[in-house]
Amino acid sequence: MVDLTKFDPTLNVALLGAAQEAINRALQYAPHTQAKLAQLEGQSVQATISEPDFTVTILLGKTLELRSVYEDKVNASIEGPLREYLAAAAAEDPAIGLINGNLKIRGDSRLMQSLQGVLSELDIDWEAPIAEVLGDVAGHQIGKALRGLFAWGKHSRSSLERQLSEFIIEEARLSPSKLELEDFYRDVRKLQQNIDRVEARVKRLVRQRAG
């Protein structure tokens, strides 16, 4: 919870206001997501970030409302340091990253699952806002080009990741492969077990000698 007595809300309110405006504008071009969100009308999720301290409450509905202060009970809450949120956002599927990461999630798990579904299906129709400005023909052409660009970007990112990992592991030998690592971990575990056994044996011998 925000310590209201020490909190100058101007900046938070400005950031959240701008974010709310941007999100709601983008949602207009994702009608499927907007319809799903409309089904969650009246429910609320609070995200608390520690290091640095920041709290936002999201009131769900056809349009989202982001609040810096919300004193009523929320349906679900997420809590954790900023790096965990960033890790979740950088995950291949942010929604799964959110659930499986090290963030503390409390409250209505069904609501969180619904939100996970909404996030993973998010698909913004870039063609619509362009067509509004430039007309249908140009909008369609540019939208097509943009979709191609995004798909190419996604493909090249995964292809680049694969090639980079091959180079690091196989060519430059900067990092061991997954199999080598598993072998190494198995050896470490075996060594640990042997040490435990020796320790137990030494203790037993010491006791026998003392007895």
Partner: peptide
């Protein structure tokens, strides 16, 4: 334009 932010915060605290 900051008066809009002050008013926004007022609404948040109004409950």
């Amino acid at each position: 334009g900051i008066h809009r932010l002050w008013k926004r915060f007022t609404i948040e605290l109004s409950g």
